[in-house]
Design a protein around this nucleic acid. Sequence first.
DNA 1: CGTCCATGTTGCAGACCATGTAAGATTTCA
DNA 2: TGAAATCTTACATGGTCTGCAACATGGACG
Lengths: 230, 230
Amino acid sequence: MMYAELTEEQSSGSLRERKKLATRRRLRRVALTLFAERGYSNVTAEEIAEAAEVSTRTFFNYFPSKEAVLLSADPERLQAVRDIITGAAAGLPAVEVLHQALTAWAQEVTEEVAELGDPADWLSRFKTARDDLHLRAAQAARMEAIERTIAGALAERLGTDPDLDPYPALLAVLASGVFRTSLAAWARSGGSVSLEHLVDLAFQALKDGLPETTSLRHALTGGADRKDHH
Amino acid sequence: MMYAELTEEQSSGSLRERKKLATRRRLRRVALTLFAERGYSNVTAEEIAEAAEVSTRTFFNYFPSKEAVLLSADPERLQAVRDIITGAAAGLPAVEVLHQALTAWAQEVTEEVAELGDPADWLSRFKTARDDLHLRAAQAARMEAIERTIAGALAERLGTDPDLDPYPALLAVLASGVFRTSLAAWARSGGSVSLEHLVDLAFQALKDGLPETTSLRHALTGGADRKDHH
DNA sequence: CGTCCATGTTGCAGACCATGTAAGATTTCA
DNA sequence: TGAAATCTTACATGGTCTGCAACATGGACG
């Protein structure tokens, strides 16, 4: 332990850990590629394992289910959202806090998609997930986890009992709804309108009591009110 | 056809249809009972079929999957919601229309639960669904279907293209969110606060721009502001 | 080094879910 | 009653996922 090379130690861990992580990533990458190519149901766990050069059993050692491949990699983001909510300025109303949190999230997603090389890649993953009933259910479950996290953090912040006060839970589902629709609209726009802008408009509409004249309604119409992304 | 007994014909259809419906119902009832007793994952399709006295294959002829048993029976309700939305008074703002639709829905649910004999029965089903990750996902997928229906109906009513106007979709997810949280709060309250009242409070909060002082926040606190349930 | 332990991987057996098919039973209708 | 449509059933098959017992590899220690 005292003679370990610190630089490598910090960034990658031991050989064992590095290999493990590599295998995990390889499995995920291969699986997503195959899903995008052929559709989720037309890819077997065995094929994924084979393409990643491990046994089928090993695949299930890494992922509890085929679905799980699609939904992996989130807990730290969940924690990040929680931190933003509990750490926001003291006097800020809950709606504003959520607005902030979602804005930050939107920025992260935007960056991530930009980094992923092809936005088409992420988009195809999104689309794949939309097509398959199974996958939509899984996606929804993930959203529910996020909602619970948000609701918990909000309740904590507001100092109320989530069992007696429906307000945090309501805000949480609303936030998740705003995010989902913004994401969908963003995907439809092909990225020509910034995700952050869409989130802003949706929250503005919420704060104004959902008037029918909200400018959200023309966010995607080819006018001059577009905002360059990031 | 001409010598058919009309009274039976009207309410139940032919012998075939009646038997079919009976089998479907029996399968569903048996399955739900088993789920409630042992938990979803601890019940196999074979056991359900056996308890309902049909072959395993027949079970899958009625339900495409084990999950489907929990989520079945909705299309007509979906249509009802759609009708309420498209059929609401002309000048009414979309938010108000949704409020109306959800109020109607709340009443239906309340009645249905009341009819089901034991509210405990429905509640246990609700609880079962909450416990199992698989089931929660399926439940969420069902909610998504409802959201899409609402969004479609709203877009039609507003005369906009859902691909260019995120507003109907946003309202739809918000409505679904309101309903879900109201349902959860209702379940927690054990029915001591009317579902309709909870929906009202949530919508009031929405129309007011989600102020932190909304009376929704005290809907479940044992005060005097309870409303007898229908 | 060589040994030992922890950890990871693998194959295998087996339970369960789900679907296609073909044969047999039942209902419908003429 | 008899032919046609429809339902049920058994059987076979493919795919998901788990438990278990070997085996291989990486890390720690003398």
